[in-house]
Design a protein around this nucleic acid. Sequence first.
DNA 1: TATAAAACAGACTAAATTACTGGGTATTAA
DNA 2: TTAATACCCAGTAATTTAGTCTGTTTTATA
Lengths: 159, 159
Amino acid sequence: MLLTTRGRYAVTAMVDITAHQDTGPVSLNQIADNQNISLSYLEQLFAQLRHAGLVVGLRGPGGGYKLAHPAESITVAQVVHAVNESVDATQCGGMKNCSGGQRCLTHSLWDKLSQQLYEFLDNITLGELVQWPSVREVMERQESILSNTIANQRVALEV
Amino acid sequence: MLLTTRGRYAVTAMVDITAHQDTGPVSLNQIADNQNISLSYLEQLFAQLRHAGLVVGLRGPGGGYKLAHPAESITVAQVVHAVNESVDATQCGGMKNCSGGQRCLTHSLWDKLSQQLYEFLDNITLGELVQWPSVREVMERQESILSNTIANQRVALEV
DNA sequence: TATAAAACAGACTAAATTACTGGGTATTAA
DNA sequence: TTAATACCCAGTAATTTAGTCTGTTTTATA
């Protein structure tokens, strides 16, 4: 309940936008294709990302989403937080009754863990993430698949 | 899917045992009372902890569980791992297909996160945990509730 | 030796959450 | 005018988690 597909999809989609926004807004259709995520599901996630002020939607043909702020100022923690209520590992979400109205025996452990996790994720921005060699590598692979698909479509049309 | 009630219950129960094992094995009934956890559910968790070689069960009256190794050599990561398949944050569990047979765009991020998490939890032993002031505080509260309950039962018997 | 306290076992159920689908409306570039 | 896109909401399917129930085995002790 700490980190699920939901948060992963959101971050992956945001990285996709970050990497491609220099050629205009990125449509959810593109992301759905690139990352193998259901379009409708993406729409739900982006409703939350938009409400959190992380992206701006542009309607109409050629529309899509772009980042609301520079990629260097959006952290992974913000993205996860926007779609996932929290990155909290405690049972009680900070204040409530872990155990009979009081903090449970290990409350402070989970609290400290949550803090560690948050610090880690809040210390990585989308701008940094797209520079990671391991991320760039996957991006390039996806782009080559994309161009192959387009090439195949051309061939199909020509034949 | 990273850390749920399951793992929290297990660690809490193990801390309870660590704190009270000097007076002999600790029964699941005691833990269920102290920590407000269902007995049957605890039994399931302890089957896993036992299979992982972290605890030893002693049957019969006066029986219960005790740690299989010194509290200083059992880490929180081991406990969580025993009841929760893993502390893995990646979608694919390390090797599989995040995205169409290949690693997804953010695989390395989740991989790194999992590593951080594991290191944190593997660096805290049960022995250390029971020394944390915040943990001792909760333990003392629980013990005073317990002795009150016993005192009340005595009064009830005397009347 | 009978009893009761405990571990040990496994199948089943309930509740919650996650992931996903479908059917729409609104906006806007071309 | 059309088509591509965002935007919205209600519902469902799948999965996982949490918990219950019904036993059996073992063993200390009265």
